[in-house]
Amino acid sequence: MALTVQKFQTVGPVEQDEDVENENVHPNDIDMDKLYPRSGHRAVVDDSNMYVLGGYNPRFRHVENSSDTYYPLFKELWKFNFTTQKWTSLITDGTMPTELASHAALRCGRNLLYFGGTGVPFGHSSSNDYYTCNLDTLKWRYVKCQGDIPQKKYGHAMARVGKDVFVCGGTTGFVYNMDIHRLDIYTGVWEHLPVHSKYTPSSRYRHEMVSDDFRLYVFGGGTAHSAFPLDKIPTYEVQSGTWQETQTKPDKVHGYPRTRKCHSCSLFRNEAYVCGGLDGEDIMDDIWKLNLITYEWTKLPTSLHLPVYFHSADITPDGCLYIFGGVTRIDDVRTNCVQRIWLTLPTLQELCWENMCSTLDMNRLQKHRSELFEIGIPMHFIERL
């Protein structure tokens, strides 16, 4: 069992829609250097930063757009530095996608991979486009794909295994499905994977999916009026092309997680971490992990500072879970809060680095990074700045 070494904490500046006048935003009041509360975005992390792509906020629905904006969607890519706890709006090169609500995104090396999503009104301008953005050069590339390209949709799930990206489920805005497509990211060729089993999971959207390299595990999700349970996990075996229901084991004290959709699910080592979400009535603040070897659920003894759904989350290579944004109240209150928790014991070096960052003037040290090297700080920490 992984060690939980600290409770959930919020880092960086925090704003919620309820903290300001919850009315339509006036164009003259928009600050392009400010990260506004949002939902339906996607976030990925590396060992130094979190990158947030897109999102939605209805308070911007009456803003007249320029060639660079797409309100009430955020045609934006932001970076949150873990060391300085500062946000930076990234100026990218090339054509950024515009269907930036309930799209799918993941990190592959130094590239951000994007597929699908919807513009507004939801479902009337959906996408089946595939883009990449290099996180070093910040250059977008539209990939003209071939083969059995998935239909235009949003609310789907995406996972990567080696050179392949798998996309599962989603909705056109009117019809839900559980189709599985595989994309070879080197050739740009899509394949619609067959199903050789009588069982097929119920169609859904806003589920999440992880892979152990042999199987695809689908967690929760639902429709506009339903949410699916987590006691049995729909599992697709790639080699045989068969679906099955994986019966999981309950937490010995807390039983099974509640049904949910619009949650997050991230893989760390052999465990999938499910956090937050909506069961149709209540927004959840819990976090659970499912061991993909024993299939046993464990409820972590901590909770979010803010319950959220339509948020996004990812886990650093060292095991720190970062959660960003989402809807915090049923009456459509959104946040730009960053919440985090270590899922395993950080190294002593990591703890020392965090303690040093909390006590020193990082703005000054950013400008004089040589000072850090001179006092013996390892270069891989300095590079995080």
Rank of each mutant, 00 (worst) to 15 (best):
K252A: 07
A224K: 12
T95H: 11
T259L: 10
V189I: 13
D285V: 00
Y205R: 02
L112N: 09
C265R: 02
P37N: 07
S89A: 13
G117M: 04
D17A: 02
L348H: 03
S48P: 00
D17S: 07
P97C: 06
P13A: 06
V44M: 08
N24C: 06
P301C: 11
R110N: 15
N22E: 12
L113W: 04
I315R: 05
L193F: 10
S303N: 13
C337M: 11
E374F: 00
I323L: 15
R260P: 01
R384T: 10
N28L: 07
F8Q: 12
A43F: 07
G325E: 10
H254A: 14
Q9W: 01
K79A: 11
I323Y: 05
P234E: 11
G241W: 10
C320M: 14
D179A: 06
D179E: 12
K289M: 11
S202H: 06
D129P: 00
N57K: 08
H181T: 10
D361C: 03
G123R: 04
I287M: 15
T359Y: 05
E271A: 13
G155L: 03
K75G: 01
E15V: 03
G119H: 07
T83V: 15
A272P: 03
V44F: 08
S203P: 01
P58T: 13
V44W: 10
A159C: 13
P27V: 02
P317C: 04
T172V: 08
C168W: 07
T302Q: 14
G55T: 10
F8I: 09
T316E: 09
S203V: 06
V161R: 01
C145Y: 07
F82R: 00
I377N: 07
L53Y: 09
D47R: 06
V338N: 08
L35Q: 12
I375M: 13
G109L: 07
R334V: 00
I180Q: 10
N363L: 05
F74E: 14
V274S: 04
H368P: 00
D136F: 01
D331S: 11
W87I: 05
S303K: 10
G147M: 06
K139L: 12
D31M: 04
G116K: 01
G280I: 09
H26D: 15
D31Y: 06
F228G: 00
R182C: 15
G119L: 03
K232W: 03
R61L: 04
Q349F: 14
E271K: 02
V120M: 12
Q151R: 11
Y186M: 14
Q6R: 04
N128M: 02
V143C: 13
W353T: 01
F122L: 14
K139A: 15
K152C: 15
V165H: 14
P250Y: 06
Y154S: 14
D286V: 00
T347M: 13
V5D: 06
D279M: 02
G170W: 02
D179M: 03
T242K: 08
D33P: 00
T316N: 04
V14T: 12
I30Y: 12
D129E: 14
T200H: 10
D136A: 01
F373R: 15
S202Y: 05
D47Y: 08
T98D: 05
